[in-house]
Design a binder for these strands. Sequence first.
RNA 1: GUGGACGUAGCUCAGCUGGUAGAGCACCCGGUUGUGGUCCGGGAUGUCGCGGGUUCGAGCCCCGUCGUUCACCCCA
Length: 416
Amino acid sequence: MAGKKIAAPKGVSEYFPPRSAAFEFVRDCLINPAKNAGYQLIELPVFEDTELFTRGVGESTDVVSKEMYTFLDRGDRSITLRPEGTAGVMRAVIEHGLDRGQLPAKLWYSGQFFRAERPQAGRYRQFYQVGIEAIGLDDAAIDAEVIAIADAGFKAIGLTQYRLDITSLGDAQSRAAHRVDLLNFIAKMNLDEATSARAAINPLRLFDDKRPEISKAMEDAPLLMNYLSESSRQHFEQVKKYLDVLGISYVLNPRMVRGLDYYTGTTFEFVHELLGAQSGIGGGGRYDGLMAELGGQALSGIGFGLGVDRALLAAQAEGVISQESFVSDLFIIPLGERAKEKALQIASALRAGGKIVEISFGDRALKGSMKGADKSGARYVVVLGDSEITSGTVEVKEMKTGATSSVKIDSLISAL
RNA sequence: GUGGACGUAGCUCAGCUGGUAGAGCACCCGGUUGUGGUCCGGGAUGUCGCGGGUUCGAGCCCCGUCGUUCACCCCA
């Protein structure tokens, strides 16, 4: 009869009481600024045709080449659990013509994402993200607004010990010009095999290498920032100006690298100071070629993904989440069968009126039920027995003060 | 995928040079009839991650495996 215990799959993040309340709080903090800015919900599948990611995110990226959960479904279709959100949103926008109305199309989403990496502090195989996408607008003001929305979410949580890194990856011409010089520079560097292989795929990656000898050598490497075309440069100047107007401080980081191939122009990253190696709590940027790459019209886009798990970790590291226990309005303790039935009726009436009501079932000892009421943080407690039912009156006890007062059962809702 | 640390009750952990398991918190019951938070008394709980080996005997030693964790790679 004793079955073997089944554990959760490796590396997933799970939230259960009491911490789940903090998770919910953090997630809502990150979502609300998007809603307040007029973004609308898009709810998408967690699995997609594998080709969406190989084409959209880029075959050469680590995410696609070694971190995807890919499998064949029963119809022999290659399916992949989504490793990020933007590609799926673009697919849906193109498929359902969401780009046919007034632009920009402004969408937000939240949910689980999947990457088959080795788990680590703040890095899970299933993780939660909140994201937004603004599609079809080139105005630099939207870049700043998108960044501001992310920033507002982190501020709503109460985070202060983080910084915003921004840079511009420029347009195609900017990057092509820079790439030639960068490859020449790297060719003189005498790298080990694995590293030069990475450099061949995307030379920008070397800017991100944490090994001291590499990062030292890269100090003199040519920066993409100095190769920006005139239009890219102007756009970026505008973004910075709008950020200044918004009072959002940022660090210009020309060595910043993002892991997804589709980024162009403005890119940014929020980095938390107390988090250890996986310190990115959110990031995003422009992806002006993605729509066309996926078969849609050539529209630009900008968006972000924010890590709910990491934001929660950051909030705990900063100690900004108040230990707010669950609080119900009323806790009813029925004594006896008749009282149990009455309690069910009272509770459903009060709940219909929007009150949070719990009933202590199971015929526990009164003392135990009272302890349960205490633990739940209930504001009021009512003990319901035969005498209360016949009199139609209960003693309502306020848990914080211990004071009681008589209330007609029928007028409980107004008394609470 | 690579490397280090760890894996004992629900949680946090103790367990000396190998001799068949403990504390605190939490939980349950009680301290005279139906009112919590303090205090006192009592109680239940573990195949010591799993599998194998060494040994008269292993939670303590060895090997493997799974998991957790930290770092690299990479990223939210």
